[in-house]
Computed example of a mutant assay.
Amino acid sequence: MEVFKYTLDKGSKKFLCPNCTKKTFVKYIETDTGNYLTDDFGKCDREQNCNYYKAPPKGNKCYLVPILSLKSISDKATKITDANGIINIIPKSQILEQTKNDCWITEWFLKNSSIQYTSNEVKYFYSTVSNFVNEVKEAVQPQQAKYNFHSLELLNEIYFEKPQIDNLTEYLKLRFSNDEVTDAMQNYFITGTNHFWNNSTAFWQIDDKEKIHACKIMQYDRFTGKRIKEPYNHINWLHKATEPEFNLNQCLFGLHRINEDYQKTIAIVESEKTAIIMSILLPHYIWIATGSKGNFKFEMLKPIKKRNIVSYPDKGEYNNWLNKATELNAIGFKIAVSDLIEQTDFENGYDLADYYLNL
C-alpha cells in the first residue's frame, strides 16, 4: 500500500492562493508531523478560474514489474525471473515493494537493465533516511470493497417493460430525426423514469463485461435540452430508490459500446447527453462519457487503455485533462486531448455538443 510523505490538508482551513490571492488555497502537510509546508505548495479550489497547483518534490519513481519468482541470493542482492522468463540480479535497495506476483523496481535500475517496463504501472516511494529503501517490503494488500451491481432484470423492467417518456429524448427529436434519436437511445439503453422527478432520464453505466455499475437519473427541460438546476441540481441515482444499501462503483457511461468495433477510435466527453448527441453527429467514433470532470482518471479509463482515445474536455478543463492524459500516456495509454472548445468564446462549462448545435 502506498504511503505518501505529503498530502493535501483534509481539514476545512483555507489560505490565500499565491496565484489569484483568493482565500481558496489548500496547503500540503507532512503526513508524519501534520506540519504545513511552505506557502507555495498546495492547490487552489478555483479549478476553472485559477487552476494553481504545486506539489512537493516526489520520491523514487518505480515501475511495477510482473515476476515469476524472486529469490534472495545474498544480503544485498536478489534474483528475479520476470514474466518473460528473463533472469536479473537486482540490488535489494532497488526493490521497494513486492508481492507474490510482482514487485516495484526503481526507474534508475530499470533504465540500465533489459527489463521492459515503460508501459507498466508507475508510482513514487518516499524515504526520509536515504535515496533508497534498503530492504524488501512485503506489500500490504488493501481489502477489496464489495461493490454492488444492478440486475439485468431491473434494466429489463425499466427499459423494456415499463418505458417512460423522458424530456431529453423529446428535446432531441426537435433537433434530429426520430430514427436517429431512436438508434442513439437504443445504443445507450436510454429511457425515461418517474423516480424522483417525472419524465427524467435514466443513464445506465454498463461496462464492457455487461455488468451494470449504476444508473444516474437527471431531469432536463423538454424544450431547451438543458439540465434542471433550480431550485437545486436535479441529479440522483436509481439505487437510492431501489437499493438503499447499494455500494456504488461507477464506470464510464457507454463503456459497453467499446466491443462493437475494435478499430474505431474512442472519443471521451464529460456529459452523458453530449456523448449521445455526438454519437449521432460523428458516428465514426465510439462516444463515451466520464459523467464528471473528476472521473477522467486511471481507475475509470483502465478498461480502454489499449485503445486509441481522443478526449474533448469542457471549456475551462483543457489543462486539467491534458495534464492527466500526459500522466496516463506515460504508462501506456494513447490519449489525445482536443483544445477545440478551449479556443472558442464560450463560457466555462460549455462543451462539444454546445459547439456543434450552435454552428
Rank of each mutant, 00 (worst) to 15 (best):
N49Y: 11
Q141R: 15
N323I: 10
G59S: 08
T7L: 10
K211C: 10
Y63I: 04
N329C: 04
L301Y: 02
L255D: 01
S311E: 01
N308Y: 08
N60I: 15
E135S: 09
R222P: 13
E260T: 15
N247A: 06
L70P: 12
I258Q: 01
N101L: 07
N88T: 10
N60L: 12
L154V: 03
K79C: 10
E2S: 06
F125E: 01
K315A: 02
I276D: 02
I73F: 07
L96V: 10
L64H: 06
K173Y: 09
L248V: 15
V269Q: 01
Q263D: 14
I277Y: 03
E2R: 13
E347V: 15
N120L: 08
F132G: 02
G85F: 02
N112H: 12
I288E: 00
V337D: 06
S338F: 02
K92L: 04
A336K: 15
N348Q: 03
T31C: 10
A184R: 08
Y355D: 00
Y220D: 06
R46L: 13
S93K: 12
I258E: 04
Y285H: 08
C62K: 07
A202N: 12
H150V: 08
S271W: 00
N156S: 15
T290L: 07
K43E: 13
S119L: 10
E138V: 12
S338I: 09
L8R: 04
D40P: 06
V133D: 04
Y220H: 08
F176V: 05
M185D: 10
T265E: 07
Q143H: 14
K306W: 11
A336V: 13
N194K: 05
N198A: 14
N199D: 13
E135W: 07
G254Q: 00
K334Q: 06
D339F: 06
K273H: 04
Y147N: 12
Y312R: 09
W104A: 00
T169Q: 10
I87N: 12
E272C: 01
G349D: 04
K61H: 03
K264V: 07
S292E: 04
S72K: 14
S114V: 14
L328K: 02
S74W: 03
S12E: 12
S12W: 06
G85M: 02
K264R: 11
I105G: 00
K264F: 03
E342N: 01
A267R: 01
F223T: 13
D102F: 07
G254L: 05
W287C: 00
R222K: 13
K54P: 00
A214H: 09
D32T: 14
D261N: 09
S279E: 03
P18D: 06
E2I: 14
S177A: 11
F125Y: 00
L255Q: 00
T24Q: 15
E347Q: 15
K226F: 07
K293I: 10
S74Y: 05
I286Q: 02
Y350R: 14
Q250T: 08
M300Q: 11
K111C: 13
D207N: 08
I29G: 00
L37C: 12
K100P: 10
Y36C: 10
L168I: 03
K216G: 15
A267V: 04
E97A: 08
L238A: 09
I266K: 02
I190S: 14
K240L: 08
R257P: 02
L340A: 12
E153T: 11
E138G: 11
C215N: 05
K240D: 09
V140Y: 13
K297M: 09
H150K: 04
K23I: 11
S127K: 07
Y53A: 08
K334Y: 05
R175Y: 14
A289C: 01
